[in-house]
């Protein structure tokens, strides 16, 4: 009986779903309201899914400091500390481009 349990267990853990998607770091899921995960026609807002995490972090730091001019991004970047920004950037980088 223990032997037959094992395959059931494996499938159960797999079926429990992609824990990573529900585990997006705080703030990450809001990004897609403007930054489309898939290509949207006629949008001037850049897509950021699949971009290098270090690039996203660098942009966010420059938005936050005002070194790089922005409209809303500077105001949003100021709401996230370095650790939160890095977590969001890593998560975005891991999303399909």
């Amino acid at each position: 009986m223990p032997r037959t349990l094992l395959p059931g267990l494996a499938s159960m853990i797999l079926l429990a779903g992609p824990a990573t998607a529900a585990d997006a770091p705080p703030g990450a899921s809001s990004c897609t309201g403007c930054h489309a995960p898939k290509k949207v026609a006629d949008s001037v807002i850049p897509r950021i899914a699949g971009r290098k995490a270090s690039d996203i972090v660098a942009f966010m730091r420059e938005y936050r400091s005002g070194t790089w001019p922005s409209s809303v991004m500077g105001r949003i970047a100021k709401g996230l500390d370095d650790q939160q920004t890095e977590a969001i950037a890593a998560w975005l980088a891991a999303q399909p481009e």
Partner: peptide
């Protein structure tokens, strides 16, 4: 620029 962002936002959020 913000007017362009507005219409881009609308297309993105309605697609999502």
């Amino acid at each position: 620029q913000e007017a362009l962002y507005a219409s881009s936002w609308f297309r993105t959020i309605t697609a999502e």
